[in-house]
Design a protein around this nucleic acid. Sequence first.
DNA 1: TACCAATATGTTATTTTGACATAATAAGGG
DNA 2: CCCTTATTATGTCAAAATAACATATTGGTA
Lengths: 249, 249
Amino acid sequence: MPQEKINHSNASPYLSELTLDCVILSFHEDCLKVLLLRWKGTQEWSLPGGPIRRNEAVDAAANRILKERTGLDDIFLQQFHVFGEVERYNREEIKYKLKHLIDPDKWYERAVSVGYYALVDHAKAMPTPDPFTEQCAWWDVQQIPALLFDHNRIIQVARQALRTQLSWQPIGYNLLPEKFTLPELQRLYEAILGKGLDPRNFQRKMLSLGILERLAERRRGGAFKSPYLYRFKKEEYELKLKESNLFFS
Amino acid sequence: MPQEKINHSNASPYLSELTLDCVILSFHEDCLKVLLLRWKGTQEWSLPGGPIRRNEAVDAAANRILKERTGLDDIFLQQFHVFGEVERYNREEIKYKLKHLIDPDKWYERAVSVGYYALVDHAKAMPTPDPFTEQCAWWDVQQIPALLFDHNRIIQVARQALRTQLSWQPIGYNLLPEKFTLPELQRLYEAILGKGLDPRNFQRKMLSLGILERLAERRRGGAFKSPYLYRFKKEEYELKLKESNLFFS
DNA sequence: TACCAATATGTTATTTTGACATAATAAGGG
DNA sequence: CCCTTATTATGTCAAAATAACATATTGGTA
């Protein structure tokens, strides 16, 4: 979007009625983080997202935005909800807050948004602002400020969807570095679920999934007893993602 | 849509880039049925669906379509996927098949579709065609013909989503009449899952959910041993729908 | 070398699951 | 009226999964 102001007229190469928002999550210092953007000349933050090109699949647009904001490709990205209310947020308030950036005549008349969440490796992501923002940063999900649009709600729904997914699919492949320890994995699960887990039961359950491989290596350098490193067995992991629904024999 | 031909120009009171499709399911004679429409003057069938009004929430549009096609209100309706590919189907083939009904200049340039599935009581639904179709009928999901657009695929995705949901949420409230027998419920589950279940284990599991109430009444009239009637306990059922995610203590 | 803080691990009682077979009964036909 | 028949209702047991629980180990640090 090279224009100076946002333009969603029908001549635009972007769809004018449909946008998407990405809840990009990572895990760092035992906390779940979400990537937010600060709009130019303001203290207002929002989720990454934006318009979809007319010749671009919606999933492809989500991947493009993820790539633009983090530099990452080929990441776990999951459609989780369509936000389709007519008045999703206070339009006047937004116009006021962003009046130096948007042309009211060309602002969305109404936009439906497809929500995606992505799970990325904190160390590999390179937060990068977009043309309308001047800062791109990780925020602890526990400490998110009031965001623009309906983005606080979108994050809430994403986190609930993630918790639900966690209960019947493995998670962690993209959120953790290639090699990680079981306590790290456990803290990730605890951060997502928002509650503590028993390390003995957690280990038993995770190992019984058959998707983890224990390496000979241990993590050194941290104080105290050095933990084993593990790695996901990619094939078995993918398989679990696909099966993952059997409740009745 | 009172026009003679479909018109999706921008002056239209409908969104031009976003539509929805409804996979409306019912259960009859031990089979899962899906509601399909036959287009005027053709033998071509498709899912119910259509455009969204500019001043209408997407969920509201889904409810409206459900109401228009079945007469039913206040039904379980679940967003399950956004179909956002650029070329979702062979546009030329569709234009050819429906040339007497659509104006090629005003046909969608590109439309993203939100998929919903609904579960309705077969006996209560009144299948009703829309302005472009002349027949609305239930089809056995096992015997669906080649449909217009990408609707065969949409049904496949809906059924998978339903199976997944079934594995962690109760289902049946809207699919069955108020009073039903356990074998009926079991056959519903079998139809959705596509496999047989053990009646003893099924009964144990369903009753342990605490959402069923056994009535004093039994079903009479069918030959052979008369089964007990059950009813869902609405409050507990709704509660289960909401909780329904705990895999880790 | 003693201490500390995090890691690794095992047992048991309880609950849930899956596999399996038989008795009861309402309708219909002779 | 009784017998047949198709369907429903139900119980047991072994195996697996779960939840609750405590202690020994060890790498680094002081």
